[in-house]
Design a protein around this nucleic acid. Structure first.
Lengths: 113, 113
DNA sequence: CCCATATTTCTATATTTATCGAATTATTGG
DNA sequence: CCAATAATTCGATAAATATAGAAATATGGG
């Protein structure tokens, strides 16, 4: 994953309504949630929701499919996975962050020099 | 971790120069890097670097200490760890993203309904 | 004490992002 | 085909973020 792709994904999640939408989509699983339902649940106008969903889609974090009149959004787990991988490799010292760096002494870089 | 804290951390990383700085700091380990060296390596004016470092610090992702005339920044691994934990719990279906969700069938939510 | 160094704060400006009503584009039921 | 529904795109602001020079604030050497 290129840094600019990671930045797009991070920026996509770094907004109240988009993070809320993505969390709902993650919980919803592959079934997904229609755009209008997301707008209602989050409490933003449809046009605002559409703007935010476009950013999540541009970052590759969600996919969309049409089902009758609705457009149903789903979280793209692979994309989120890739972002986690990028962060683990580049921002956590190259090891699994939650295991290796929390008070552990297995860090590649010594904590005190 | 509260959602707004996660958003601050995500936003702090979602910028070219800040992500570059944070990656350098992660690689540097506890030794850290002075503000001026970061500015030089990244190629931004000192005042711009200071602006970005303030955002990273406000998000809790870096710590700073004075050493003579320099102010040395270091990555805060615990904060990054907390962010990874938040993302894993809230944006990856509640399991370790890189293990459970990449084509695995161990997801809590069924992939197809 | 003075000067050079390192950094931050201030100030102004440019750029990007967010908001939301109105208009537009699909889709379906009747 | 027409009316109703679901979304998106458009357009106009508003708000937040980024940039960078200039001024101000510490620190330490001589």
């Amino acid at each position: 994953m290129q840094p600019d792709h990671a930045i797009r994904a991070l920026a996509a999640l770094a907004q109240e309504h988009r993070l809320a939408a993505f969390r709902l989509l993650v919980k919803a699983g592959a079934q997904g949630i229609p755009a209008g339902v997301l707008a209602d649940r989050i409490g933003v106008p449809a046009s605002s929701m559409s703007f935010h969903l476009a950013q999540l889609a541009h970052a590759g974090l969600v996919t969309q499919r049409r089902a009758s009149r609705s457009i149903i959004y789903s979280a793209d787990y692979d994309a989120m996975n890739a972002l986690m991988g990028y962060l683990t490799e580049n921002c956590c010292g190259g090891e699994d962050c939650s295991v290796a760096l929390s008070g552990s002494d297995s860090c590649k870089e010594p904590m005190i020099r």
